[in-house]
Design a protein around this nucleic acid. Structure first.
Lengths: 239, 239
DNA sequence: TTCTGCTATCCTGTATGACAGGTTGAGGCT
DNA sequence: AGCCTCAACCTGTCATACAGGATAGCAGAA
């Protein structure tokens, strides 16, 4: 009495895929929002006529796509958007040489010109302060590249958040992993302190333009910043 | 003799997460590229001292993130970049009202201005022909909105591919699902044939600028196109 | 009566064994 | 040499079992 399942037709991609579809459709029908609970694995197993194994693999898939969140002992919940969701994919593309670092920086340049302009228009006071704080912190820790990098990443992410469009945040977050791997290379290629100071000053200038509400200036400075960063990476021999 | 596993420390996130890390690191160490095979589930189960269950859930997660590809009977292989990888995440964000349609279009406007300019600079002859073909096909099927939409989607994706930066393709592809759901609304809001003709002409003009190699003109026309599309959605009451 | 602590219950994480069915390569037959 | 068959391997799914986290409800103490 193995297959009692002749009634539900599996798509050509197997039961797990069908189940993923069924669960997403169920979320849609029930109009579940972030934080809402999904049925338990056992319940879904009964309702969809598949084993708990299949439900679990479907859950894992949905969790990997950041549509739901799993935690032990508790039911699965609908997930909030997470800016880190896309990082693994981009890192994989770069590692397998399907994406070059320069291509990543070209996209960042395009996106962040816009986030800088939007941030200048839409930032809250708190967001303005946070952006400025990251920029000044970068200068303070001038001898600790690790800390400079963290504040640099925080700087760009804070600008994306201040642009008040979560899709931009998502995209900027997607590049954080790759940036973390390539940043030290670019930093080392800026040989003397003068070159390093130029980069730090640029960050401060961008923060200033955003805080003072000059979108065009913020965008232009951001473009300049990326031109300079890309140049530094080329000097270091990054393709 | 249940837990023989005291040697390998599980991270605080459970064995599946640790195993995902171990597998990605293994791919890195072995320098696996797209198409290369991973070890079998049984082998990994032995090597990593976890059950096949854990290996399978880790594989499902990696497959959901599009880092690997699974197929029955064959071993898992390292995946090529797939422009459709991000669609589910964006759709989820829109469905749960964490992202608005206008925010999606603002990002598309930003990105596709750039892809249009790059396409004008870098397109191959074949790519130019394909872009133009989509634009003219949209006019031919003027009475079949379904077909117009498909050629519209193909048009924008072809431009992204002609820009020769897979990250742009990835991002443009991410919005295909959402666009497919909102496109008909925008189309219906263009009441008379004159308004519809404007949109079709714009596509043809963009294709022309790309084929003739005018990046600035292509970008400007693309911006105009999105301004018009966003206006049409606002008229239709899309927030 | 209200607060506290314990327990029964539900739920997820992991392991194990079993079997159906797809895939592939090694031999053997023509 | 070319083709065919089959055994070995591999993934997909199911059933069952148990450890341990989470939680509500009940009982006892203040």
């Amino acid at each position: 009495m193995l297959y009692t399942n002749t009634s539900s037709q599996d798509g050509p991609e197997g039961r797990v895929s069908s189940t993923i579809g069924a669960i997403t459709q169920m979320m849609r029908s029930a109009d579940l929002g972030p934080g809402d609970q999904l049925p338990s694995e056992a319940t879904l197993s009964r309702d969809l006529n598949v084993s708990r194994t299949v439900i679990r693999e479907a859950f894992r898939s949905l969790a990997a796509m950041r549509l739901i969140e799993l935690s032990v002992g508790k039911r699965a919940t609908v997930a909030e958007l997470d800016y880190a969701a896309l990082s693994p994919l981009i890192e994989h593309g770069v590692r397998t040489e399907q994406i070059s670092v320069q291509q990543v920086y070209d996209v960042r340049r395009t996106i962040e010109q816009r986030t800088a302009a939007l941030a200048a228009l839409r930032r809250s006071d708190d967001q303005g302060r946070e952006i400025l704080a990251h920029a000044t912190a970068m200068k303070v820790h001038a001898d600790a590249p690790e800390k400079i990098m963290e504040h640099d990443l925080g700087f760009h992410l804070a600008i994306a958040k201040a642009a008040r469009n979560p899709v931009f945040t998502l995209i900027v977050g997607a590049f954080e992993g790759v940036t973390r791997q390539t940043w030290p290379i670019g930093w080392r290629s800026r040989k003397d302190q003068a070159e390093q100071a130029i980069m730090l000053d640029l960050h401060e200038a961008i923060a200033g333009a955003i805080v003072e509400g000059h979108p065009q200036r913020a965008a232009d400075l951001m473009a300049k910043h990326f031109d300079e960063s890309i140049r530094a990476l080329i000097v270091a021999g990054i393709s």
